[in-house]
Design a protein around this nucleic acid. Structure first.
Lengths: 230, 230
DNA sequence: CGCCACATTGAAGGCAGTCAAAGGTGGTGG
DNA sequence: CCACCACCTTTGACTGCCTTCAATGTGGCG
């Protein structure tokens, strides 16, 4: 997709005029990253933030032993590391592409100037941060209060609700990431995820076909997701 | 403390002129809550947000089985549920005073109007949300990647760094909440917290005196907090 | 064809939650 | 002033979910 188009689709820039978006684009720096190339590290000095133009980026934390917790998987037109502009001066996590990605980097100073003079941009930023906050509240709730089965079920139902695909009345969804990455997003490891997927399949709630999952019994999944059954 | 003073101390209103703060105060509604009285519930329609004038409020999630995860303990002059104004239309958690509290409630519509016309207020809101976001990223990291010992050590060191008190060269801190509440904040239960406190005390890293904790060996605690030792 | 990353399955062990019971503590009212 | 009661804290025994370790299976791609 062309750069301006990708920027215009971002929630961060919605409601802005064409010239405003061109102005914003003018202060951004486009850069491509190969798969696995580190974009930034936890604790590194933050000099700006990013908007993803194309590809898929994971934002994650690492434990001392090397276990990974994915905080967020960033799709096209989504911003990340915005909060680093305003709180602390370092990146709060690692970022790395899952697929080759084109990003636009916005230097802190120039963007802060923009936001101070553009009320609509301010409001968009507030809305984006609020949405992100809700996302993290959900993540905390799940990690602390729910088991892996419930977390997986909730994740699958959420994905299914976004996917329009059906097959014979059943919703079909595509985990766009490897199961190892999904495990990391769910706060567990691939072995555990594998066992839980098998259990759900044995109970005829889902069918697993590689990276595609068929939802056979959404009601039962809802029940597990809410923690009512095991 | 007098209401306007408490509002002026809030980061959300910092940098605003006296008249602006009076205007803001004008749209707020003051209300007192007794200990344990529910302020709002998870999923309830959000009609505004709150600033704590005095007292202590916990914001928390509940599991189906009734286990509690505290997301945030709100002290005087801090705002909460701000994000509910901009993302979703429901409160994302429960809120309840830990001590009798005076709150100021700001209705959504009138406050949105204010923020659209006051750039400084917008920026303050962005800064506050960013700080909160960082708080939740830390919480996710700890819940997912660290054991209870590490979470407790990090919490104690953080509290100690804010407390000015020392005794014979050792820092002394006051857990301002019950140990049951602390356990809930750390994503565990009082029994487990009790055992971990005892273990740290047996290792001569801390001394527990009711709600006061003396830090005897901060270096060792640092090591545990970072996950390097058990 | 063979490598390599990803995925699956089994066995074993540990951290933390549950259940149960016995102190401790603070606040309230008689 | 003190006795009672509700709530908090501590300790022990047990259970279970999930991680760790190890080995084998599988699929895509040079």
């Amino acid at each position: 997709m062309e750069t301006s188009k990708a920027l215009a689709k971002s929630n961060l820039f919605s409601g802005l005029t064409g010239p405003e978006i061109e102005q914003i684009r003018g202060i951004g720096i486009e850069k491509s990253y190969g798969k696995g190339e580190l974009i930034f590290s936890d604790g590194q000095k933050a000099t700006g933030f990013f908007v993803n133009l194309s590809g898929q980026v994971k934002v994650y934390k690492l434990s001392v032993e090397g276990r990974e917790q994915i905080l967020h998987i960033i799709g096209p037109s989504e911003a990340f590391a915005e909060a680093a502009l305003f709180a602390g001066s370092t990146f709060p996590a690692f970022a790395e592409p899952l697929t080759p990605s084109r990003l636009m980097f916005f230097p802190k100073d120039r963007f802060l100037h923009l936001i101070q003079t553009n009320p609509q941009l301010s409001l968009n930023m507030i809305a984006g941060l609020s949405t992100l906050l809700r996302h993290f509240v959900d993540l905390v709730e799940e990690l602390s209060l729910k088991d892996v089965g419930a977390r997986l079920s909730a994740y699958l139902l959420d994905l299914a609700s976004r996917s329009g695909e059906t097959r014979g009345g059943d919703r079909v969804l595509d985990l766009e990431v490897t199961k190892t990455q999904l495990a990391s997003r769910l706060g567990t490891i691939s072995e555990t995820l594998s066992r839980v997927l098998r259990r759900l399949q044995n109970h005829k709630m889902i069918r697993v076909e590689g990276k595609r999952i068929v939802i056979l019994n959404p009601e039962a999944l809802e029940e597990i997701a809410s923690g009512l059954s095991t």
